[in-house]
Design a protein around this nucleic acid. Sequence first.
DNA 1: GCAAGGTC
Length: 771
Amino acid sequence: MHLIVTEKNIAARRIAAILAPKNPKKDRVSGVDVYRYEIVSDEEKQETVVVGLSGHIVGIDFPKEYNNWQKVEAKTLIDADIITTPINRKIVTALKGLGKKASRVTIATDYDREGELIGVEALNIIKQVNPDVSFDRVRYSAITPKAIEAAFSNATNVDFNLADAGHSRQVIDLVWGAALTRYISLAAGRLGKMFLSVGRVQSPTLSLIVDREKERNVFVPTPYWEIYAELQNTEGKTFSAQHSTRRFLDKKEATKVFKKLGKKAELKGIEKGKKTDQPPTPFNTTGFISAANSIGLSPANAMRIAEALYTNGYISYPRTDNTVYPETLDLKAQIEIFKEGPFKEYAEALLEKAELIPTRGKKETTDHPPIFPASLAKESDLKEDEWKVYELVVRRFFATFAGPSEWETMRLKLDINEEEFRSNGARLVEPGWRWYYPYNAPEDRLFPELHEGDSLKVIKKDMLDKETQPPGRYGQGRLINIMEELGLGTKATRHEIISKLYSRAYIHGNPVQPTNTSFAVMDTLETYSPTITKPDMTKLLEENMDLIAEGKIKESAVLEESREILKQVFSELDKNREKIVESLQAGLREDKIIGTCSSCGNELIIRRSKRGGRFIGCNNYPNCTFSLPLPRSGQIIVTDKVCEAHGLHHIRIINSGKRPWDLGCPQCNFIEWQKTQQEEQAKQPKKEKPKSIQDLEGVGKATAGKLEDAGITSVEALAEADPVELAKAIKTSVKRVKNWQISCNGTVTVESNSTAEGSSTVKGNCTVEDA
DNA sequence: GCAAGGTC
């Protein structure tokens, strides 16, 4: 039997469909889909089975004796054994079953480094049960009949060096990541769910965010002034112009100019020009994510939707670096799909062109084609966000075949009392690709009918106070673009890395803002392990991987060198342990400060009660018992926004998988909660006040007798009695007595200790364990 | 409970 192994199920299905003479038979082996067909030649029957993996089906880890973070010193991980364990048992079992019967195995995983490693992983499993099986490798850049047939008639050898290169990455990432993660978490005293992670990709990414925030913090704004004039032509049409000194740095000078301005302006010159915008390049993952981000979808969300569209056959594979359509892709046929349906007019316009020449991006790779629409969908077939993404992909695909868009530009030079003013306008004359792809289009800035020498009325003049702005925080889309430029992460992982930083409470908000914890962690790493905080580590790793792939150096040599460097890092860390602990914990403390206690003036911080609940308490406890409640679950982020009324930092709650909840000022939130509670109470129908004790619910003759014995004969007396004493006297529970008392007051009191969104009220006398 | 990389 001939066994063909692909990287994913969909590739297995499509390759089987291409290679099989008749429809392949779908079968299941150990719960895994496989595709069978027979090829008959010279009276010989060759059975073929195509099976798809699910990416890596095995992973590496340390043996379990290293599992205890407290008992195993972090640095011992550097030289620890590394074991390979299955991460997808079903597929491993299926592969062994099929492997036993195979006489030939063809590795048909993706045509890239990870693909080679994934193929070798599968091969190693098969060799366990069938050591002498013969094997080969096919490489293809698109799953089309032409490309697949060509690949299978030119089968070559498995590139073990390339797989080793991939394996070296796995080992280095695990060893550095795990050892430093544990070290930092232990030093900060953050174990369990709240651990602090470190990694080759996430740490340099976090460093970008922290550095940007530092730039913002040291930024000193410079004031400047701008002067505008609103002008009107003889027909009464208006437009605005700016003084040609765009920024006045001196207020006196600006004021002088401003005062000089009269009521009349003269149009000194009109300069007409042309500007063209080239059509955009095909979508790779990064390009797609940033376009989706600019129409309001987060990277993680955009990828989730793209994957759903892909599995349903609406778009091509969304994880690709490629920005050049492969020759094997029949582009015209892909456009013809849209001759029907909502994009009809666009498809027809493209098909009328004499030639279809798509744009090309800078990156051309062999893994997958750029993202393109694979089949026709109607708006009603998809959810709202899915349609948004689908439409984006369709329109981008069309735009790559369209012509440039052309603008007519106009620059005006004006004179107001010998002060020069300017105004620029532009008009779209040829939409070109922008007709197909109308996202983020600049608007026309049009002038009324004007001629050189025209005299215009100055109907308004403005002098604006402005100041220079610090560099902006990164949005998620921008961050992914920078990561790609720096070579950090891959198309499939960049958005996950950012999600990881959110879930570790290193960052919050959008645009992205780091927490104080991030500053502390990055400071420590930059001082003692700068390697892991810089993109250079990835660059060096890539270089070494290339050397391994080319057979110029052995994987073991690269690993040994890497471990030596990490050992030096740890010797520095060990020498400075005390300082590190101190600075990390100081940073963590800052993330807990909410503001000043209104009752005593000390610091309000996030505290933990003995039962594990969280609340905001005063540093001066037990002398001061001021407290505010916090929600029971979710990560608490103290933002830099401060409440004007109470001077407390706003709080944001992050629950994984949910939208962050902006709780705002904890005191305002608490006041608001109390108000809604009172309103709720007011809404409750007033129960009639019971007249006699026996009117109370659950009070029969016997109980009434007991109460009488205890000296309680009226409703009023019951309401005022001490519940504890009374409960003791009549041998019942305090709760029962309290409930009677509530009824006696005629209202139904809501006895709740949670707000609508799950926060808990905390009384002032909590036992404080950690601060 | 650690990383980053596949895939769903």
